[in-house]
Design a protein around this nucleic acid. Structure first.
Lengths: 93, 93
DNA sequence: TTCGACCGTGATACAAATACCGGTATAAGA
DNA sequence: TCTTATACCGGTATTTGTATCACGGTCGAA
């Protein structure tokens, strides 16, 4: 075996990651953000929809810069499973 | 044209990026750091030598975590051309 | 010298990222 | 109605990332 296919967990992480980018994009259009980051709109759409679950580092860095996001927070948010309000409250207690 | 080949500038950026990782690794062995990050030693070596100039985001995130590096600082350091002491002094003046 | 642990290179293999194209759908506006 | 803008999808093409294997070099210890 030469290159392990992406695991379901990695694909789910890609979906969470895409949701984060989409939320950060807000009302701005895909083409606008993609152009600001220097990537194609198709690439941004695939990342946001989770169909490109493991994008390259510099692609993500350019998008994060265009969106005003921190790479460290982005990685932490996508790596950790989602947590709703009650879970966060239970943790902080 | 479907996928633009990497430009020389992108390859140089990959080399600078690899140097940063190698410096951060210090005296630790490739095998140790690669295992801690969950990637193969060959992959880490290719990234450090610049032969894989655009690694995936989560691969870099895992390596940065294993090395105690900030993804934001890493991206900024690799994106900007290297600056020596005199240039930094001229900028700060 | 021999052994072992690293590091490096090259070949090989396969999956995935990126990009372009055409088509479809929806909503807002003239 | 017609046009425009936006987003989604399928297909296609090409490059690259990731991983495994084999081999060679270097260095320090036995």
């Amino acid at each position: 075996m030469v290159r392990t296919p992406l695991t379901p967990g990695e694909r789910e992480r890609g979906e969470r990651f895409g949701v984060l980018l989409r939320e950060a994009r807000g009302g701005r259009s895909m083409v606008e953000v993609a152009a600001a980051a220097g990537v194609s709109a198709e690439t941004l759409r695939k990342i946001e929809t989770g169909r490109a679950p493991t994008p390259s580092f510099f692609t993500v860095a350019a998008l994060a810069y265009a969106l005003g996001l921190s790479l460290d927070e982005l990685a932490a948010s996508a790596a950790l499973p989602v947590m709703d309000g009650s879970e966060a409250e239970a943790l902080s207690a």
